[in-house]
């Protein structure tokens, strides 16, 4: 069935089963591969996107629930990778293997959209669902805090 929604600001329609998962539709049908598959059960957060502005696990989102919604992926976060968090990730040399970092950035971006000056504890609590096996957590924290400091 054709499912219509907004993807990175543009109206789109895709003909996939209604129980197909947003993660795979993004990756294999739209070829927006910045959103990653990591666990398939909302445990690692590599698949995090924004659905109507909220950080969500795309691996837990069937397409039937996406109809009419607005989805933003890492590719749509900024037109040219210039979101303050993306710049902070580069200047802080955050990523190692990089596989989880789209999820990390999207989750952090959703927080800052809601709250421009979260506390250290609020950041940690908000970011805890996204795993990083390379252990870049402290650099992620510093990068987020540097964006907050710059306002």
């Amino acid at each position: 069935m054709a499912i219509e929604f907004t993807l990175n600001g543009k109206p789109v329609s895709v003909d996939v089963p209604s129980d197909a998962l947003l993660l795979w539709v993004l990756r294999e049908d739209f070829r927006l591969t910045g959103t990653k598959y990591g666990c398939g059960r909302g445990q690692c957060g590599s698949c995090t996107v924004h659905i109507d502005g909220q950080a969500r696990f795309s691996c837990r989102s069937p397409m039937s629930a996406i109809e009419g919604k607005s989805v933003t992926t890492i590719e749509g976060l900024s037109p040219d990778g210039s979101h303050p968090l993306q710049k902070a990730w580069i200047s802080g040399q955050v990523p190692q293997c990089g596989y989880c970092q789209s999820g990390q950035i999207m989750r952090a971006a959703a927080l800052l959209q809601e709250n421009s000056s979260p506390t250290h504890e609020e950041i940690v609590t908000h970011m805890d669902p996204v795993l990083c096996r390379c252990g870049t957590y402290n650099r992620i924290l510093r990068a987020i805090e540097s964006v907050i400091e710059q306002g």
């Binding site: 993306q86 990730w89 580069i90 040399q93 990523p95 596989y99």
Partner: peptide, 13 residues
């Protein structure tokens, strides 16, 4: 690193 902040870094996946 830049490609690992904007979704363009290519993994086999």
């Amino acid at each position: 690193i830049p490609a690992k902040t904007n979704g363009t870094a290519t993994y086999a996946m």
